[in-house]
């Protein structure tokens, strides 16, 4: 195996390790942190089923964002939807051996790369030219978009221009990563850049704003049922305080007859 292939193989496992451990820790932290107050935002679902539907609408249609700002919604949706299709299409590189015929159907998903790039460009343009958004942007916010743009564009260059890379080699490399049957990868620069940035993205997932992905599912304003009057809602720490009478009325001012 070539040195570069060894480096990239190692990078894959390192970034995947950081991703899994980091996300695991973060999701664990989110899940053990209690939510002492009932704070679902109107219009609130009154049942658990309602919450599930609300969450589905939020993550598939970006409902709140649609209410908020049509431009951000459009570009955000194009990017995320494009990314989803492109990711599905990438499965074919990771599944070893011949693919089932159903994969012919996802072949056209390659055009989703354009959705992705258009969406990202729109978001970047807004970030640069809308003063309000420029005001709240840190360097990392631009870098994140640029990185995703470079990933998208370098991928599109491989697919849609004559700068193809050896797909069979890519497939052997990618599926080899999963089956621990490592092999060489193509060394075209745009492919290496593409791959490297994806690894970077994986590694920074748990320490960056990409945490919005697990975050939405734990957001109390979106995942709570509005039933505070039907069912008592109290967190473990508040209940403990109550049982141990740490917060007593007679500790407050004045007399407590």
């Amino acid at each position: 195996m070539s040195t570069i292939s060894i480096i990239f193989t190692a990078l894959f496992y390192i970034s995947l390790f950081i991703f899994i451990v980091g996300m695991g820790r973060k999701i664990y932290q989110f899940s053990i942190t209690p939510a002492p107050l009932k704070i679902p935002t109107a219009p609130t679902p009154l049942t658990q089923t309602g919450v599930v539907f609300r969450m589905i609408r939020e993550v598939t249609l970006f409902e709140s964002l649609f209410r908020s700002n049509k431009w951000i919604w459009l570009f955000g949706f194009l990017f995320h939807f494009g990314l989803l299709l492109v990711l599905i299409r990438h499965l074919r590189y990771f599944i070893p051996g011949d693919l089932p015929e159903i994969f012919l159907l996802i072949q056209p998903f390659k055009y989703a790369a354009f959705l992705m790039v258009i969406g990202l460009s729109g978001l970047l343009v807004r970030r640069i030219f809308v003063p309000r958004i420029r005001y709240i942007s840190a360097p990392s916010d631009y870098l994140m978009l640029l990185m995703l743009l470079v990933i998208g564009i370098s991928g599109a260059v491989m697919t849609f221009t004559s700068n193809h890379t050896d797909v069979i080699m890519v497939k052997n490399f990618a599926s080899g990563l999963l089956t621990f049957d490592w092999s060489n990868l193509p060394t075209e620069t745009h492919f290496l850049v593409h791959l490297f940035l994806v690894f970077v993205l994986l590694a920074i997932f748990p320490i960056s704003k990409l945490l919005h992905v697990p975050g939405i599912f734990f957001s109390p304003t979106r995942n709570q049922v509005d039933n505070a009057r039907k069912k008592r809602h109290i967190s473990a720490w508040a209940l403990k305080q109550e049982k141990e009478h740490t917060v007593k009325l007679d500790q407050t001012l004045g007399e407590d007859k």
Partner: peptide, 9 residues
Amino acid sequence: DSCVKCGAC
């Protein structure tokens, strides 16, 4: 942790 600075708000 979750804010992406999208600017919607």
